[in-house]
Nucleic acid binder design. Sequence first.
DNA 1: TTTCCAGTTGCGAATACGTCGCAACTAAGT
DNA 2: ACTTAGTTGCGACGTATTCGCAACTGGAAA
Lengths: 171, 171
Amino acid sequence: MKSPNPQRRSLVEELSRRGVRLTGQRKILAETIQSAEGHLDAASLLELARKRDKGINRATVYRTLELLKELRLIDELDLMHLNGEKHFYEAKTTVDHVHLACFQCGRIEEYTSPLFERLKAEIERAKQFHIRLVRLEIGGRCSRCCAKAQSCAECAEEECCKAAPVKPPAA
Amino acid sequence: MKSPNPQRRSLVEELSRRGVRLTGQRKILAETIQSAEGHLDAASLLELARKRDKGINRATVYRTLELLKELRLIDELDLMHLNGEKHFYEAKTTVDHVHLACFQCGRIEEYTSPLFERLKAEIERAKQFHIRLVRLEIGGRCSRCCAKAQSCAECAEEECCKAAPVKPPAA
DNA sequence: TTTCCAGTTGCGAATACGTCGCAACTAAGT
DNA sequence: ACTTAGTTGCGACGTATTCGCAACTGGAAA
Ligand SMILES: [Mn+2]
Ligand SMILES: [Mn+2]
Ligand SMILES: [Zn+2]
Ligand SMILES: [Zn+2]
């Protein structure tokens, strides 16, 4: 579940570079997001941040997430609302990635593709739309859960998910 | 803001075809969603449905949305949470479409592309992931708002959105 | 260094959105 | 018509997020 691409600068560096006031809370929150292995929701972020500063408040977490979103240093995700309506956050990576959420086991996978980049470029051209951020989220059944399923009874009026052979992405 | 592709059957037809109990409320809600010009949130759907049956309850709206989602007759959208955390709903179309939300004017545009279809196919193959539903949402500035902007001062450390010439999508 | 203040924080109450349990109701099969 | 499993209305509840305001503080200026 780790990001497929490294960030150029740390979130904290990026904040000071942009003249944002660097409070203790912001440093802790930014570093916590950056070093998290997965995708954090606001509550988990608060919990982790409190290990470093017991006093950090929930409102500050939300305000900081808003700030980082605005500055496009983090992305906000739904992850298919597999469990409640909360949102998840991750430090932006150098190249956008797709999120795949398995409805059966809840695992989240990530995927990048030149085809995704081409699609974005096409949209900008065709619609003359200036893209600021992109979210491609997919729900379904992961390979592991597909393999476990004996038949495709769960697939409901649809061709089996085990049919396709593995093949490397072609741009 | 209307769907770019027609549905094969009406939602109500689809419900009875699948042996779902057809209550008055479900008929009204399904028809309301289908005939809506835009993307409805739960509150708007309730309001519209109440024009036909004053008694319809909020809980029924949420339960029906859940049902229609499960049956994959509607899609759920965030539309970039331009205004609150609510979700939006629309009848599924024959081919998936991208949603483009303008942060400046709030307009929602839709877009389909063979490239999008190719990307989905690639993901299914490469990750052996059985896709059940897809949500590609993009936030940025629409062509109208790009045209209105004198300079790209708002674009913030980024190339201007007016640079690219119009070109038809190439699959 | 010390001063200063715009910007930030903690707090608790408020809001927004969605969910639940349960008794009353109804679609649809017999 | 009878029956009953599934559905609804209702109001209370839960969870995620926001807000107003007084106290605090980063960092620029003196
Ligand atoms: Mn990710
Ligand atoms: Mn959402
Ligand atoms: Zn799985
Ligand atoms: Zn616009």
